[in-house]
Amino acid sequence: MSKIRSKVYVAGDNIDTDNIIPAQYLNLVPTIPEEYEKLGSYAMAGLPDDAAPFVDKATSKTPYGILVAGKNFGCGSSREHAPVALGAAGCKAVVAEYYARIFFRNSVATGEVYPFETAEPLVSEFKTGDEAELDTDAHTLTRLSDGKVFPLKDLGAVAPVVEAGGMFAYARKVGMISDK
């Protein structure tokens, strides 16, 4: 995939893993297909009650394929349920100023969501519901209302893992483990 066109959901700084998937739902196991779907239905359910709903109750999916956030997105727990919940809900990418380490790593390892970092803060440039286009090859996010293009940072040391499609695919590609 190189271009993701979608509505944007905007969140703030220090969105922690309890905001992304509250601990009471950690009894769900991501590798069990129906529980994977259930995790998606609870994505971002830990945000304060006055926040805009992320998931559409009728479909249990999100209309927001791109989540724009501020500093330290995904801080807190190591729960892989967090990028899984976003991915299972139908979110394709997070675009944040920077990430907590484990969330970033889990996004890369699972391939559930692209974890892009922005060159400049973007939370004031977008509002929830805006249409945008993310180009994962050119590393840009375009605001479709006026065509303004915002550059994203290079994925850095993890780029080969993202390109391979996750940790296992990468390890097979470099010969660390054998093919299935």
Binding site: P30, T31, S78, R79, E80, P83, I102, R105, N106, A109, T110, A157, V158, V161, G166, M167, F168, Y170, A171, M176, I177
Partner: peptide
């Protein structure tokens, strides 16, 4: 250090982990 399920599944099988 703390890791997610995917990395842990990998370590479980190989005893190795890609570390930055």
């Amino acid at each position: 250090t703390g890791i997610g399920n995917t990395d842990a599944g990998f370590v479980m099988g190989t005893g190795k982990m890609l570390v930055k």
